[in-house]
Simulated assay, not measured.
Amino acid sequence: MTAPIPLRPGGQLASSVCTTRVIVVRAPAAGNPVIACGGSPMVPAAPGQAAASTVTDAVTLIGKRYVDADQSLEVLCTSSGVGELSCDGVAMTLKAANALPASD
Protein backbone atom coordinates (compact mmCIF):
# COMPACT_ATOMS: atom_id res chain seq x y z
CA MET A 1 0.00 0.00 0.00
CA THR A 2 1.25 3.49 -0.79
CA ALA A 3 1.78 6.18 1.82
CA PRO A 4 -1.05 8.72 2.17
CA ILE A 5 -0.62 12.05 0.39
CA PRO A 6 -0.13 14.96 2.82
CA LEU A 7 -3.30 17.05 2.66
CA ARG A 8 -3.31 20.85 2.89
CA PRO A 9 -5.80 23.47 1.79
CA GLY A 10 -5.38 24.27 -1.89
CA GLY A 11 -3.94 20.86 -2.73
CA GLN A 12 -5.34 19.30 -5.90
CA LEU A 13 -6.07 15.60 -6.26
CA ALA A 14 -7.14 13.53 -9.25
CA SER A 15 -8.78 10.13 -9.46
CA SER A 16 -6.79 7.34 -11.05
CA VAL A 17 -9.96 5.56 -12.25
CA CYS A 18 -12.19 8.35 -13.62
CA THR A 19 -12.25 12.08 -14.43
CA THR A 20 -12.92 13.28 -10.86
CA ARG A 21 -10.66 16.09 -9.60
CA VAL A 22 -10.90 17.89 -6.26
CA ILE A 23 -9.28 20.74 -4.34
CA VAL A 24 -8.77 20.37 -0.60
CA VAL A 25 -10.70 23.15 1.17
CA ARG A 26 -10.12 22.03 4.76
CA ALA A 27 -7.74 19.35 6.02
CA PRO A 28 -7.67 17.76 9.47
CA ALA A 29 -5.06 19.18 11.85
CA ALA A 30 -4.01 15.73 13.03
CA GLY A 31 -3.58 12.58 11.01
CA ASN A 32 -3.37 12.06 7.29
CA PRO A 33 -6.50 10.39 5.89
CA VAL A 34 -6.55 8.59 2.57
CA ILE A 35 -8.97 10.11 0.04
CA ALA A 36 -10.11 7.64 -2.58
CA CYS A 37 -12.36 7.83 -5.62
CA GLY A 38 -13.98 4.74 -7.06
CA GLY A 39 -12.12 2.61 -4.52
CA SER A 40 -8.62 3.72 -5.60
CA PRO A 41 -6.53 6.31 -3.72
CA MET A 42 -6.44 9.72 -5.36
CA VAL A 43 -3.11 11.04 -6.64
CA PRO A 44 -1.69 14.59 -6.81
CA ALA A 45 -3.20 16.35 -9.82
CA ALA A 46 -0.82 17.51 -12.50
CA PRO A 47 -1.00 21.32 -12.67
CA GLY A 48 -2.79 22.70 -15.69
CA GLN A 49 -4.20 19.37 -16.82
CA ALA A 50 -7.91 19.76 -16.26
CA ALA A 51 -9.95 16.79 -17.37
CA ALA A 52 -12.31 18.33 -19.90
CA SER A 53 -15.14 15.90 -20.27
CA THR A 54 -18.87 15.83 -19.91
CA VAL A 55 -19.97 12.98 -17.69
CA THR A 56 -23.68 12.29 -17.93
CA ASP A 57 -23.88 9.66 -15.17
CA ALA A 58 -21.60 11.46 -12.69
CA VAL A 59 -21.60 10.44 -9.04
CA THR A 60 -19.20 13.17 -7.92
CA LEU A 61 -20.58 16.50 -9.11
CA ILE A 62 -18.62 19.57 -10.20
CA GLY A 63 -18.96 22.59 -7.91
CA LYS A 64 -20.14 20.53 -4.93
CA ARG A 65 -18.34 20.25 -1.60
CA TYR A 66 -17.88 16.86 0.04
CA VAL A 67 -17.05 16.22 3.71
CA ASP A 68 -15.96 13.24 5.78
CA ALA A 69 -18.02 11.88 8.70
CA ASP A 70 -16.75 14.36 11.32
CA GLN A 71 -16.46 17.24 8.81
CA SER A 72 -12.75 17.77 9.51
CA LEU A 73 -11.96 17.19 5.82
CA GLU A 74 -13.67 19.14 3.04
CA VAL A 75 -13.00 19.00 -0.70
CA LEU A 76 -14.46 20.90 -3.66
CA CYS A 77 -15.09 18.93 -6.86
CA THR A 78 -13.56 20.70 -9.89
CA SER A 79 -14.25 17.94 -12.43
CA SER A 80 -17.15 15.46 -12.31
CA GLY A 81 -16.65 11.74 -12.45
CA VAL A 82 -18.33 8.39 -11.98
CA GLY A 83 -16.33 7.39 -8.88
CA GLU A 84 -17.60 7.91 -5.34
CA LEU A 85 -15.35 9.86 -2.95
CA SER A 86 -14.34 8.22 0.32
CA CYS A 87 -12.11 9.09 3.26
CA ASP A 88 -10.35 6.19 5.00
CA GLY A 89 -12.85 3.79 3.44
CA VAL A 90 -15.99 5.70 4.52
CA ALA A 91 -18.08 7.42 1.85
CA MET A 92 -17.93 11.21 1.87
CA THR A 93 -21.21 13.12 1.77
CA LEU A 94 -22.38 16.33 0.13
CA LYS A 95 -21.91 19.29 2.44
CA ALA A 96 -25.23 20.78 3.46
CA ALA A 97 -25.80 24.41 2.59
CA ASN A 98 -25.65 26.84 5.49
CA ALA A 99 -28.97 28.48 6.30
CA LEU A 100 -28.98 32.22 5.85
CA PRO A 101 -30.21 34.32 8.73
CA ALA A 102 -33.76 35.53 8.45
CA SER A 103 -34.13 39.12 7.39
CA ASP A 104 -36.66 41.12 9.32
Rank of each mutant, 00 (worst) to 15 (best):
V90E: 07
A58V: 02
A99E: 15
Q49M: 13
V22F: 01
T60R: 00
V75L: 06
D88P: 15
A50H: 13
A3P: 12
P41C: 13
L13T: 05
V24I: 07
A99S: 14
L100F: 07
A46V: 15
C87N: 14
A96V: 08
S53Y: 02
M92G: 13
T78Y: 01
P41H: 03
L7P: 09
P6R: 02
S53L: 04
Y66F: 06
L100R: 11
L76Q: 13
V24G: 11
G10C: 11
G10M: 08
D57P: 03
V43P: 03
P101D: 15
I5G: 14
A97H: 12
V17I: 07
P9C: 09
P6E: 10
P6N: 05
P101N: 09
A58P: 15
R26W: 02
S103W: 02
A50W: 01
T78W: 00
C37I: 02
G83C: 12
A36T: 04
L7S: 15
T20V: 13
A102I: 05
T56G: 06
C37Y: 00
A97L: 12
A29D: 06
A99Q: 09
D70H: 05
A3Y: 04
M1F: 04
V67E: 13
G38C: 08
L13K: 03
T60V: 03
P4K: 02
T2M: 04
T93E: 10
A52H: 08
K95A: 07
K95S: 12
Q12W: 01
G89N: 11
E74T: 14
G38I: 11
V90Q: 08
A3K: 05
V55Y: 00
M92R: 02
S86T: 11
P9N: 15
T60A: 06
I62N: 02
L61G: 13
V25I: 13
V17E: 14
L100C: 14
A29N: 03
G11M: 14
I5N: 12
G31Y: 03
D57E: 14
P4I: 05
P101S: 13
A97M: 15
P4F: 01
Y66S: 10
V22T: 08
V43C: 13
A3V: 07
V43Q: 10
S53D: 10
G39L: 04
I35G: 12
T54S: 11
L73I: 13
K64R: 10
D68P: 08
L13I: 05
N32L: 10
T19G: 07
V59R: 00
C37W: 00
V24N: 10
A46K: 05
I62Y: 00
S16N: 07
S79M: 03
E84P: 06
S40Q: 12
P101W: 01
G10W: 01
P47Y: 02
T56D: 11
A96G: 11
A30P: 12
